[in-house]
Design a protein around this nucleic acid. Structure first.
Lengths: 224, 224
DNA sequence: AAAACCTGACTGTTTGATCAGTCAAATATT
DNA sequence: AATATTTGACTGATCAAACAGTCAGGTTTT
């Protein structure tokens, strides 16, 4: 796949990254895919949002499938790098990190990316949810490729700091944790609706302060 | 919306339900919607699987949207009836039912329906996941219409048997519980993949024996 | 015979993808 | 240092396939 090498002409006075058209398309596709789903999204709409001709998308990404995968790869790469980094850091700084710190390391990058970043309104989280929960072969291959590696790292970390947690229970724990996290990150506003405004799924810190104790207690209940 | 009132002619010798074409279409749409998503599913494919002409679907259900809603209404009706029934039963039989019995009442109908029934392979659960996690207005309206009422009942039940659980924490607890449940019911096979065969998301009893303690411990962690 | 059920061919639209051709910048040639 | 050539980025028009929905006209049930 070819990369756009051309940048804004003129001096690089601004510190902000000059987004190439290639990346503009990726960003546009992210919000359109998130809003309409993979099948509901159209190349025309993505092109329109990116402000480019539709043909250019096919020039850069060949097919809709390839565009989707490139978009997943870019975003999951960022998030998983952060996850792997904070996980390594935890074991370097402490002999025995707490379960709480590990669970927080799992969710903070995704929640922060989903909520505070560029006001995407949980767009990518919604993509993640629908991809990971699909039974389709293509979607499962994507999940395996971009999310299973980091999953194995977390499962290993769980087993390491909770010796009384068997390997299969660690996998269950991880799956349950992801289930909680993904549902919340999707930011559908249902929590607010059910609580008549009491619960705000737009506040990352409040959400983490609920999710982390919930999951940690759940995990400890699976130890024997 | 018109209802098919017609049943198989002749004596009702068989105990099995004589499925009308109307219901055959609903069942067919269920598996096609589950496999391809709302947008990915086509009326042609649904017609083919149901063994009827495509026009008949439009005759009975008018539009694709209406068909989808009718399908959700039928299935969620069954499941939520069971949920409401077992919830009422719990409070009739015991003064103070356990948290475990309530959580189990929440999941058993869906898991049993998803796993053991007619081998649908978690089809409906996958539809539920994608609908409830969508930010689209239509999908949220559907969720509100077919799932919020039973949600309120469960939240009330939680507050009642766990007085130290505040109302907002009860809503969080319910959302988290649903997150765990939906992810597992989707039966993507990821648990088996991550555990190299150790975890089987196709066994309803094993899954319940993991989910229920996990969620109950999580909920108790939210009491203060 | 009236009503409800059902079919298969059809319509207009939208879809992902293709393609010939424009353009500016880099590279090679004189 | 001026000119020719190649390259990669990009556009707008266009394609065949697939889509949801329609309809005139049969068939079965009441």
């Amino acid at each position: 796949m070819q990369q756009a090498v051309q940048y804004q002409s003129g001096a690089s006075t601004s510190g902000a990254a000059p987004e190439t058209r290639y990346e503009t398309i990726l960003s546009a596709s992210e919000s359109v895919f998130a809003h309409s789903g993979y099948r509901g999204a159209t190349m025309r709409e993505i092109a329109e949002r990116a402000g480019v001709a539709q043909g250019l998308i096919h020039y850069h990404f060949k097919t809709k499938e390839d565009l989707f995968e490139a978009m997943v790869a870019r975003r999951s790469g960022h998030i998983n790098d952060q996850r792997a980094h904070s996980l390594t850091l935890l074991f370097e700084e402490h002999e025995n990190p707490t379960l709480e710190s590990i669970v927080e390391a799992l969710f903070r990058p995704t929640i922060v990316a989903g909520i505070s970043q560029a006001g995407d309104g949980g767009a990518f989280a919604r993509i993640l949810v629908s991809t990971a929960n699909s039974a389709g072969e293509w979607e499962q291959t994507l999940t395996e490729k971009y999310y299973d590696p980091i999953a194995h790292k977390y499962i290993a970390a769980l087993v390491r700091i909770e010796p009384r947690l068997s390997r299969d229970n660690a996998v269950w724990a991880y799956m349950f944790a992801i289930g909680v996290g993904m549902t919340m990150m999707a930011k559908t506003g249902r929590a607010g609706r059910l609580s008549e405004g009491l619960c705000d799924d737009g506040d990352a810190d409040i959400m983490l302060s609920k999710i982390v104790p919930f999951i940690c207690a759940g995990i400890r209940a699976l130890t024997d």
